[in-house]
Each structure stands twice: as structure tokens, then as C-alpha cells.
Design a protein around this nucleic acid. Structure first.
Length: 263
DNA sequence: ATGGTCGGTTGCCGA
């Protein structure tokens, strides 16, 4: 089974790029983040033409928004609002093979990495903390669960272009990377991208729009992740970051990540 | 040290 996750940064603007991605990769399931559209306006009919006829979506006006798009039927769609905000950052659904899929968009956290003065950073830390507690309470790690999306944290030194220069930059500060490590440990999540491509090999999924030549500068960060529950241990067959998609016409600033699981 | 670019029921805000 092939699963793709992508922060698309507006699903309506980039529908042609989604079409190209689906034609190129023929995925069973696509997870999206930053769809930036309310549910009634989500382009489900166009996406069904690509063969992704089943969906679980949670959107809002202008900001955030997550989706699960699938060739196969989806049951028990749901979503959670951590930190008590109804802001469309999480959706989940179950595939016919029993695998539960979660699409997640963690708050970016603003510019100032100090929760005392920056409410966006406080929100990010609280969101990760509540999510950390939720999974062991609500789910059995032995169950087959995949969690993927834009976690907005690059945890390892080789997940960023310069560990030293980014230590005080939101996405790579110790309080964030330690929080993400706790979330991973609390449920026993397997970091599928790093299981396939171990550190210290360079592995990025995001390059700023502000660089004049993103490919040459290669100042990337691994903000997008695919996590597997212990119940899915041993199923990972392949993983690839579709870096070329960052160079397509009118690109998202995130590249898609594809995993193949033996299910 | 600074400013750089995107998207959205836009003229700022969030990323």
C-alpha cells in the first residue's frame, strides 16, 4: 500500500499539482495539510476523477485544514481539537484492512521561541504535549496506526541545513525537539523516514519560499513526518521525498513524502 | 544582522 503525505498550501490553487503527483505515484492514500478551504468548497469531485473517491476532510476558512483522500473506503472519520481550539489540524479514518490513518498539522509556532511572550509558540508546545498524552490513552500501540503530516519540528541535527544556526529558530529549538521525542516515546512511534534513511544522512521536506534558489542553497528542514505504531513494525518497504515537486510551477514550500507499506 | 516570498472571501496575518 502506497501512502503520500503533503502540506499542499492551498488544495484549490494546487489542484493541478495534486493531479500530477497522483498520476506519477498512483498512491492508495493521500494525506494533505494546509488545505485552506471549508469543507463544502473542497474540490472532492475533481479529486474523485483521479481515482481517490473516498475522503475524510476537516477544513476552515483561510487557515489550516487537513484531509485524507483514498482509493479505498474510509470508515469512522473523526478528528480532535487539542488545546481546545476548533482549528482543523487533525483528521483520522480507518481503511478496509483495519489500518487507522491520521493526518496532522501541528501549529508552526510563530517567530519568537519563548512561550512567555509568544502565544503561538505556547500553543505549539501545548498542542504537542496534549497529543503526546492522547495517543496512549485513546489507542493501543499494538493496533496498526499510521500518523503523518506537517509536524513543524525538525528533530535531528541532520534534519536541518545547519544545526548550530537553527538552535534558536522555531522548528529546531531544544524545547520543541525534546517535546517531539517525548511524543514519539510515549506511544513507541517508529519514525519511518529515519528507519529508511538513518541519520546523519541529509533528509529535508521543506525549503523556504524566500531563498532565491532553493535547490542551490539547499537550506532545508525535515518538518514533515511519517510515524508507524509498533503494530506496523516491519511493514515499511520504501520511502522517498519527492523533492522535484518543490521545483514544479507554483509549488508548495513542502515536498511530498511517499511510503510503501507491506500490508 | 537583515530581509527575503507565498496564500487568502487579502489591504494584514500566518507561514
Amino acid at each position: 500500500m502506497r501512502i503520500v503525505t503533503w502540506n499542499i498550501n492551498s488544495v484549490r490553487l494546487r489542484l493541478p499539482l495534486l493531479q500530477r503527483l497522483v498520476e506519477d505515484l498512483d498512491p492508495d492514500v493521500v494525506l494533505l495539510q494546509e488545505t485552506k478551504v471549508q469543507d463544502p468548497q473542497f474540490p472532492l469531485k475533481d479529486i474523485a476523477k483521479l481515482g481517490l473517491t473516498h475522503s475524510a476532510i476537516r477544513g476552515m476558512k483561510s487557515y489550516n485544514g487537513v484531509a485524507i483522500l483514498s482509493k479505498h473506503p474510509l470508515t469512522d472519520p473523526d478528528g480532535h481539537d487539542w488545546v481546545g481550539r476548533d482549528d482543523a489540524r487533525h483528521v483520522l479514518a480507518t481503511l478496509p484492512n483495519g489500518v487507522e490513518i491520521h493526518s496532522l498539522y501541528v501549529p508552526a509556532g510563530g517567530d519568537e521561541p519563548d512561550p512567555a511572550v509568544n502565544d503561538k509558540f505556547r500553543h505549539k508546545l501545548d498542542f504537542v504535549s496534549e497529543m503526546t498524552d492522547w495517543f496512549p490513552r485513546a489507542r493501543d500501540p499494538k493496533a496498526p496506526i499510521l500518523l503523518a503530516g506537517d509536524l513543524n519540528i525538525a528533530p535531528l541535527e541532520s534534519d536541518v541545513w545547519s544545526h548550530k544556526q537553527l538552535l534558536k529558530v522555531v522548528s529546531h529549538t531544544p524545547v520543541e525537539t525534546e517535546g517531539l521525542a517525548r511524543a514519539q516515546e510515549a506511544f513507541g512511534w517508529i519514525d519511518a523516514m529515519r528507519a529508511h534513511t538513518p541519520a546523519p544522512e541529509r533528509l529535508y521536506t521543506w525549503w523556504s519560499y524566500r531563498a532565491k534558489d532553493w535547490r542551490a542553497a539547499d537550506r532545508g528542514r525535515r518538518l514533515d513526518h511519517v510515524w508507524l505504531s509498533p503494530g506496523l513494525e516491519g511493514t515499511l518497504r520504501a520511502m522517498r521525498v519527492i523533492e522535484d515537486a518543490r521545483g514544479w510551477e507554483k509549488p508548495s514550500d513542502h515536498a511530498p513524502v511517499v511510503v510503501d507499506l507491506d500490508l
